[in-house]
């Protein structure tokens, strides 16, 4: 554990809390992509099945349980409790275009052809692109509420901080995992455009609005 890793995890935690609070306080999930949330739930389910086979630490276990539980809680809020506020008309990204290539890639490019390892690889690749339905939704409506922008910023920062963590670990422990690193870089790059808008608009008190 180093400072980048901890900051990354905290940023991830913060993103989820922001999202849940937004939905809960406003009693609405308007502007949030249910498809991205479904992909995240699938990501954490596939990755954290090792909860039962691999003990790392109490921190690790608590975080994994939290990520799985909150991903399903979000889906419950979006598709059941506050279903009437879910903006499904704008949430039209075809997730099969992500799931199919990600599945094939996980079967071909992995460290070991075993059930758990392929599930882990699948989750790493899927996480990298899981935000695309959400970003697509923002570009389709041309705007995002400030709170949604803060959520996206925290979520995007998390993998960026992990990249610094991987650089740190490479030099201090000679540890690196190419699959995680490349997917993490792709994941972060997908947020670049959003980061730019966040710094130039949202932080100056303006609403995130895309040029028409």
């Amino acid at each position: 554990m180093n400072v980048f890793r901890l900051a990354g995890d905290m940023s991830h935690l913060l993103a989820i809390i922001i999202l849940l609070l937004k939905i809960w306080k406003t009693r609405s999930c308007a502007g949030i992509s249910g498809r991205s949330q479904l992909l995240f739930a699938l990501t954490y389910t596939a990755r954290y099945l090792d909860l039962v086979t691999n003990w790392v630490s109490l921190y690790n276990t608590v975080m994994k349980v939290f990520f799985i539980a909150t991903s399903y809680a979000t889906i419950y809020l979006m598709y059941l409790k506050f279903k009437a506020t879910y903006d499904s008309n704008h949430d039209t990204f075809r997730v099969e275009f992500l799931l199919l290539p990600v599945t094939i890639l996980a079967l071909v490019l992995n460290h070991e052809f075993s059930f758990m390892e392929i599930l882990w690889t699948f989750s790493i690749y899927l996480e990298a692109v899981a935000i695309l339905p959400q970003l697509f939704m923002v570009s389709k409506t041309g705007e995002a509420e400030s709170i949604t922008s803060h959520y996206l910023f925290a979520l995007g920062s998390y993998r960026l901080l992990y990249i610094f963590n991987w650089i740190w670990r490479y030099y201090t422990e000679e540890y690196y995992d190419l699959i995680a690193i490349i997917a993490g870089v792709v994941q972060t790059v997908l947020y670049c455009d959003f980061f730019y808008l966040y710094f130039t608009k949202v932080l100056k008190g303006k609403k995130l609005q895309l040029p028409a």
Binding site: D9, N54, M63, H111, E112, W120, A180
Partner: peptide, 10 residues
């Protein structure tokens, strides 16, 4: 051959 390192990241 080589055992994979333990996955300790989230």
């Amino acid at each position: 051959c080589c055992k994979l390192p333990q996955k300790d990241e989230l």
